[in-house]
C-alpha cells in the first residue's frame, strides 16, 4: 500500500484551457487564419449581424462560420445562403466552448483554406466569458432592448472583449436605453473597448464595424 500524500497544486482550473488557447492562437497565426469569437445573449442579433458582415467581406476574404448555439440549425441554413462554408459545433449541451472544442471545429471546417472564421458562441454573457477559445479577437453584441445596465450586471464579458457592438439602434426611440451611459459603463470596465453602434436591420453603422474587422484580419494574415 502506497503512502498517502498531499500535493499542493494552487492553480486556476482555467489554466489548462488558457494554455491550449495560446497554442491554438499560435497555430492560427501559422495558418494565417483569423478567428473572431462572437458572444451575446440569445436574440441580440448575432445571425443578422453575421449575414451583413459576410456580405461586406466575402469578396475580400475566404470566410467560414462555426455555429455553437444549442439549436441553431436555422442559423446554419441562413448562413449557408450567403455561400460561405458553415458548420454546426457539438457542445453536448454545455454552456460554453473551450479551446479544445473550438480547435476540433476548425479542423472540421478546414482552416488552412480560410482567412476569416467567425464563431457564434453559445448565447449567454456569463460562461463563454470565462473560457478563452483561442480566438484572435473577441466581440460581443448587446442589443437595445436588453437595457444599458448590462456592463454593470455582467462585468467580466466586457473586460475580455475587444469590441462591443450595440445592435438594434433603429429601435432607440422606443426604449429607455441611454447610449452614452452604456458607453460610459462599458469603458469603465475596459478602457480599450472599441464600440460600434449599429442596426443589422437597416445597415446603419455596419461599415464602421466591418472596416475595423477588415483591418484586423488584414494585419493578422499578412504579418510576417
Amino acid at each position: 500500500m502506497d503512502k498517502i500524500r498531499i500535493i499542493e497544486v494552487k492553480e486556476s482550473i482555467f489554466e489548462d484551457n488558457n494554455r491550449e488557447a495560446a497554442r491554438l492562437r499560435a497555430r492560427l497565426k501559422n495558418e494565417r487564419t483569423f478567428l473572431l469569437n462572437l458572444m451575446s445573449s440569445p436574440g441580440s442579433g448575432k445571425t443578422t449581424t453575421l449575414m451583413r458582415t459576410i456580405e461586406e467581406l466575402k469578396h475580400e476574404f475566404r470566410i467560414g462560420v462555426m455555429e455553437a448555439d444549442i439549436d441553431s440549425s436555422v442559423d446554419a441554413e441562413k448562413i449557408a445562403t450567403t455561400g460561405v462554408k458553415s458548420i454546426q459545433l457539438h457542445t453536448g449541451g454545455m454552456c460554453h466552448l473551450d479551446a479544445g472544442m473550438t480547435e476540433q471545429g476548425l479542423n472540421e471546417l478546414g482552416m488552412e483554406n480560410l482567412d476569416l472564421v467567425i464563431l457564434e458562441n453559445v448565447g449567454n454573457l456569463v460562461c463563454p466569458a470565462e473560457f478563452d477559445t483561442g480566438a484572435v479577437k473577441n466581440a460581443m453584441i448587446l442589443s437595445v432592448p436588453e437595457g444599458h445596465d448590462k456592463p454593470l450586471k455582467y462585468p467580466l464579458i466586457f473586460t475580455v472583449c475587444d469590441v462591443l457592438i450595440i445592435n438594434k439602434i433603429d429601435v432607440l426611440p422606443y426604449f429607455d436605453f441611454d447610449l452614452e451611459k452604456v458607453k460610459e459603463y462599458a469603458l469603465m470596465r475596459n478602457p480599450n473597448l472599441k464600440i460600434f453602434p449599429i442596426s443589422a436591420k437597416t445597415g446603419e453603422g455596419i461599415s464602421a464595424w466591418t472596416d475595423w474587422l477588415r483591418n484586423q484580419v488584414g494585419d493578422w494574415i499578412n504579418a510576417d
Binding site: 500500500m1 502506497d2 503512502k3 498517502i4 500524500r5 498531499i6 500535493i7 499542493e8 497544486v9 494552487k10 492553480e11 486556476s12 482550473i13 482555467f14 462585468p155 467580466l156 469603465m188
Partner: peptide, 19 residues
C-alpha cells in the same frame, strides 16, 4: 461607482490527497 472586484471570482485547485 468606480469600483473593481479584487478577489472572489477564483476557481482554484488547491490540493489533492492521494497515493
Amino acid at each position: 461607482e468606480n469600483t473593481y472586484l479584487v478577489q472572489g471570482r477564483e476557481i482554484n485547485l488547491k490540493e489533492i490527497k492521494a497515493c
